[in-house]
């Protein structure tokens, strides 16, 4: 019974197999086309929904603030009045009349310095703290309190200490973004499996080798989580800090635009800030998943 049922089935599969062999040649070009279609489809599935949603939001915005006498500019007003800012990010018409690209770069430079210091100090101090149970017990509560202090609350203190706006802004970035980096690194180091420590001990790796070859790769997922939160906070803080310290950055631009009632310019600046923040977050995230792909795969 079962044999009889098996036989025609087996025959069927053989003929099917032969048919495929014959059909292979034309299949290559159509397979390529299929692949292209599939890629286009995934692209559309990922890009179209946000585009449509953005369109709907712009439409609602236009309807809500399009009538004369509205308190805020509508998208079309922004386009009309701030076209120069949108179209060319890198123009230079004078010392204070420069494109938003330049201003963003100035802000990014400050963030780069402050965040760079925060990353180096945060990872090193976090590694030391994570290694020592007593340092962890003693310092963790203090860090947990300090980390909740809002960025701007540090500004008066740093202005008093540095007596200059540029280092003060950088210090605010540093002190804002260091806590998540430090705390996450410490937790990551705490969580290094005992096995890896045993391997290091049997091989008699010294502190430097242990830090470089075991600690950093093993804690990389934690460290990059901290870096990602840190860069987000740094970007939040820079705008607020620049509003108060002045200078060339994108934060000061918003404050300046507000003082001279150029609301459309502010809207454009908000888009710049949002997009740059998004890109920063993605860059750190991408580096993180690249660096820690081995660790998380285990």
């Amino acid at each position: 019974m079962s044999l009889a049922a098996l036989k025609p089935k087996a025959d069927h599969s053989v003929t099917k197999g032969q048919a495929q062999v014959i059909a292979l040649k034309p299949a290559t070009s159509s397979a390529r086309r299929q692949k292209l279609v599939r890629m286009a489809r995934t692209f559309a599935a990922n890009v179209l929904p946000p585009l449509i949603c953005a369109g709907v939001i712009f439409l609602i915005w236009q309807i809500a603030f399009g009538r004369p006498g509205a308190t805020l500019p509508s998208p079309l007003t922004v386009w009309r009045e701030a076209q120069d800012l949108i179209v060319d990010p890198f123009f230079r018409n004078g010392p204070q009349d420069i494109g938003l690209g330049w201003r963003t770069l100035t802000s990014l430079q400050r963030v780069g310095i402050g965040f760079g210091f925060a990353a180096i100090v945060g990872i090193l101090v976090g590694a030391v703290i994570g290694q020592s149970i007593w340092a962890m017990r003693g310092l963790d509560p203090i860090f947990q309190i300090l980390r909740t202090v809002p960025p701007l609350a540090w500004l008066p203190i740093s202005l008093a200490a540095f007596r200059d706006s540029q280092p003060s802004a950088i210090f605010v970035i540093f002190i804002t973004s260091i806590w998540p980096i430090l705390i996450n690194t410490a937790v990551g180091v705490r969580n290094i499996p005992q096995d890896y420590r045993n391997v290091a001990e049997v091989l008699r790796l010294n502190h430097f080798e242990f830090f470089w070859k075991i600690m950093l790769p093993s804690a990389a997922p934690y460290i990059f989580t901290g870096l990602r939160i840190g860069i987000g906070l740094a970007w939040l803080a820079i705008v607020a800090a620049e509003m108060l310290t002045g200078g060339v950055g994108i934060g000061f631009f918003i404050w300046d635009a507000w003082n001279s009632s150029r609301l459309p310019d502010i809207v454009v600046a908000l888009f710049y800030i949002g997009i740059v923040g998004f890109v920063l977050d993605r860059i750190v995230g991408a580096i993180g998943s690249l660096v820690s792909r081995g660790t998380s795969a285990s």
């Binding site: 499996p193 096995d195 890896y196 045993n198 391997v199 001990e201 049997v202 091989l203 008699r204 070859k213 075991i214 790769p217 093993s218 990389a220 820690s292 792909r293 081995g294 660790t295 795969a297 285990s298």
Partner: peptide, 26 residues
């Protein structure tokens, strides 16, 4: 601990971010 007494651990303890070659090379 020291390298004259090498340990083969129960759960292999290879470092997951290194290749097989690099694990031995370490």
């Amino acid at each position: 601990p020291g390298p004259e007494r090498a340990v083969v651990f129960q759960n292999h303890s290879l470092l997951p971010w290194l290749t097989v070659y690099d694990n031995v090379a370490l």
